[in-house]
Design a protein around this nucleic acid. Structure first.
Lengths: 297, 297
DNA sequence: CGGCAATGATACCTATCAGGTATCAATCGA
DNA sequence: TCGATTGATACCTGATAGGTATCATTGCCG
């Protein structure tokens, strides 16, 4: 049995007339007769009773018609669905993120992607660098976002965003009166650092930045995430150097000031994915990512 | 697209190797390659990524595989179901019956039919002769059972059972002492007749039977159904001539006696169906009906 | 009542295409 | 580097879907 048989039968069952059905199928009547005969032989039952004036469905014909229509419908949606999957318009995008990355740039990317590919399900997974790499290899992740990602042969690391740094200070702190703050100004100031206990982290960048100005950072507190860090700034513990994205965290008593320097200090956000991943969804997502990157607006 | 494409693809997706898949499909490898290429072209997406050492499903391929398997499964059950419908092993049998016919013979037929065609749904409809004929014409009934059915050109009436008559008498009545009763014995006896007010009914048969013996029936009560008639016999209202099937109605105080006559009086049970009905279910049912008929055991 | 028109079935031809054989290109492993 | 294995390609052949011509049946209508 082939889909042709079912298609022919479905049309014939609608028309109940071989000539009209054949015309609708753009074939002549004898081939239609033959295909229907074949179908009848294969299912082992008369499908239509031919009473000289037109035809009529038998019980078996009625039974098959239902199934045939459902099958033909399924074939149609299967074709469409497969095509969509091939163009990355359907499926699932698993994105690995880390704490503060979710504050600004990545949500914009995801929003844009969702608008363009509304039928792709997006799943977010908060994971560390190492977890992301492992998850990518095990196909649990399509793409990850992180900073300072070590180079691996099977993982592509692509810088997607250059984010300026800002300094979060308490509104009552003298530096809050400046429009912009020089790194030299914060040498000796009490510093809140994050994340804590992580190799190759953003915290190291900040330390290095201060040391480059000849200062010794005076860390008064290490915390695990931005939100806690900014909360401490709000309560006057000290100041904090953060990616600009954090400034969307509006906490009472905290102001954010750009850093005065040439070139202004920036931090890279990278995206990572399997080198051999040819999934159209990844391609589509990377396409959008690159349109937004790497320069900050 | 044809089912061939889906079948080939499903096997290939399982094997993930063109040669093995081709072998399982009893074709050689090049035609398989070509059919898969055609399929890919039609859905507009790569289904497999060919990495020199074996192949791998793409996202589109995974999407299609699910649908393909479901479709192939449906095709299989559709074939089976249609064949069954063609052999009358599936579907629905609407049977029209009248009051007392349900007491003995018809239930046996239905039981046998249900055992042989367990997947056919049986629906019973209590209807008069005229209702049955109308329902047959309107396809609401597959087959009807009745007595004294007038001949109609489009309805076949087939005698399916020759039922002896018996006489129901009160246990205390003098005739109850006889093993068998002659019609002559009941001339003048108080008679309960049913059904009431119906043309060409069983009641007429009984009346004719008694008149043939030269007697004038002494009808003391007319009722609509057997059960009421037998209940009246139980309370001593009179005696009642009924088809033998009624004797399965065991009421306290009622005994049934055969009629002594040559030939013994009988009443015909007929089944009726549309002359142009070629449904295999009807054929199957008639087949069983005829095996039980027309002689009483 | 006979010819006409419409039905689906049959006979036979043709063109398409599924499937076969031989072979190629690429790549992995020994 | 050579052989083995992968899927792809080229080309041929045979099965078969589809076409044309025609038939048998039957309802319709003058």
């Amino acid at each position: 049995m082939e889909l042709r048989h079912l298609k022919y039968f479905a049309v014939l069952a609608e028309e109940l007339n071989f000539n009209r059905a054949a015309a609708r199928l753009h074939i002549s009547q004898p081939p239609l007769t033959r295909q229907i005969q074949q179908l009848e032989e294969e299912v082992g039952a008369r499908l239509l009773s031919r009473n000289t004036r037109g035809v009529e469905l038998t019980a078996a014909g009625r039974a098959l018609l239902e199934d045939a229509q459902r099958i033909l419908g399924l074939v149609k949606v299967a074709k469409e669905r497969t095509g969509k999957a091939g163009r990355g318009q359907i499926g699932r995008l698993d994105v690995g993120i880390f704490g503060s990355a979710i504050l600004n740039h990545i949500p914009r990317l995801l929003l844009e992607f969702r608008n363009r590919y509304p039928e792709v399900e997006i799943a977010l997974h908060a994971q560390t660098k190492a977890e992301q790499v492992a998850a990518l290899r095990e196909r649990r992740l399509t793409v990850g976002f992180n900073r300072h990602v070590p180079v691996e042969p099977d993982i592509v690391v692509e810088t997607v965003y250059l984010e300026p740094l800002v300094i979060a200070v308490n509104r009552k702190h003298p530096l809050a009166r400046h429009k912009a703050i020089r790194i030299a100004d914060i040498v000796g100031e009490p510093l809140i650092l994050y994340p804590r206990n992580t190799r190759n982290s953003f915290a190291d960048d900040v330390m290095a930045l201060i040391r480059k100005e000849g200062g010794q950072p005076r860390v008064v507190q290490e915390v695990t995430d931005v939100v806690t860090a900014i909360a401490l700034v709000a309560s006057g513990f000290g100041l904090c150097v953060t990616p600009a994205a954090a400034s969307s965290l509006k906490l009472r008593g905290v102001v954010y000031r750009p850093i005065k320097a040439t070139p202004p200090p920036i931090i890279e956000l990278a995206c990572l994915y399997r080198r051999d991943d040819e999934s159209p969804i990844l391609a589509a997502f990377l396409d959008i990512t690159r349109k937004f990157s790497p320069a900050p607006e």
